[in-house]
Simulated scan of single mutants.
Amino acid sequence: MTNSTSPLIVEERGAALHVTLNRPERLNAMDPVLVTELRDLFTRLYWRHDLRAVVLTGAGRGFCAGLDIVDADRAAGNDVGEVLIAQRRISEIVIAMRRCPQPIVALVNGPASGGGFALALAADIRVATPALKMNAAFIRLGLSACDIGVSYFLPRMVGSSVAADYMLTGRFFDADAALRHGLVSRIVEQEDLAATGDEILESLLHATPLGLRLTKEALNFAIDAPGLEAAVAMEDRNQALTAQGPDFAEGIAAFREKRKPKFAG
């Protein structure tokens, strides 16, 4: 487990990794240290097949207020090359989040603005509290609203018209709007958030390790698939792969015997 004074608390609990953004005094805004730790963590997860799911949340009363303007790399200097490198250091976080094989459950416990909005969108499952506030804050700071993958994720989740409405204005999704537009799968009270995350984890870990990884991978590809046949080809390949080995047989046996399966992985 990472030291509790670290800007990123990381705890392995069996096959699940619990990750907490830990700068509550700044609403977990991302400074250069937190940016680096997040990017490195999700990059390393690509090879951690022993870890099967990730829970991501924020300490204190917020999820993530975005990039910490006080410490922002991109605010230092005017050299285009340096700014582009600094920008890529941040954007690589969401690329690594989508590439890592573990489903990511974001427990959005309050504001998620700018880069925090991007982190939430890059997760696979989002659960929020009634205190949720999400927006593409970049456009309100003199930048484009298209940043850190938001212009990719948001239209695919809510449609181009709704995405344009929120991105061009920078206005906030509250909890009701986020649920109505499908940005989150459920809203729960703050005191129930951790238990809801555990419940989702239990359901995720009921799947075989390979089935879980290949389902996330196929969902990623299906979003951009050129058509039904391409998506079905990926599905066929994944079913053929998961049908091999002992886990499929164990799953069938456990179903018939009405017990929890014991997958070898």
Rank of each mutant, 00 (worst) to 15 (best):
T2G: 06
N3A: 12
N3D: 14
T5D: 07
I9V: 11
V10N: 03
R13W: 03
G14M: 06
H18I: 06
N22Q: 11
R23P: 05
R23C: 11
R26F: 11
N28R: 08
N28Y: 09
M30L: 15
M30D: 00
M30I: 15
D31S: 05
E37Q: 15
R39A: 10
D40F: 03
D40R: 12
L45K: 02
Y46G: 09
D50K: 12
D50P: 04
L51M: 13
L51P: 01
V55I: 15
R61K: 04
G62C: 10
F63P: 00
F63R: 00
A65F: 10
L67Y: 04
V70A: 11
D73C: 04
N78Y: 11
D79P: 01
V83D: 14
L84W: 07
I85Y: 05
I85D: 10
A86N: 14
R88I: 05
I90W: 04
I93S: 08
V94A: 14
I95S: 15
P103W: 07
P103L: 08
V105I: 04
N109F: 07
S113P: 01
S113C: 12
S113G: 12
G114Q: 08
G115R: 03
G115D: 02
G116D: 02
L121V: 11
L121R: 11
I125N: 04
I125E: 09
R126E: 06
V127T: 07
A128N: 07
T129E: 09
P130E: 13
P130Q: 13
K133T: 07
K133E: 06
A136P: 10
L141F: 13
L143E: 15
A145L: 09
C146H: 15
V150P: 13
Y152A: 04
Y152K: 08
L154E: 08
P155V: 01
M157Y: 00
M157T: 01
G159Y: 03
V162D: 03
A164G: 01
D165K: 13
M167K: 06
M167Y: 07
T169A: 01
A175P: 14
A178F: 05
L179I: 06
L179N: 11
L179G: 09
R180N: 05
R180D: 05
G182C: 00
L183W: 02
V184N: 03
R186Q: 12
R186G: 02
I187C: 05
I187H: 02
E191G: 09
E191C: 08
E191Q: 13
I200L: 12
L205S: 13
H206K: 03
H206V: 06
T208D: 01
T208E: 00
P209M: 07
L210R: 10
R213C: 02
T215K: 15
E217P: 01
L219M: 06
A222Q: 07
D224Y: 04
D224N: 02
P226N: 12
G227H: 03
E229F: 02
E235F: 14
A240I: 13
I252H: 10
R256H: 14
R256E: 14
K258A: 02
K260L: 00
P261E: 03
P261G: 04
A264G: 12
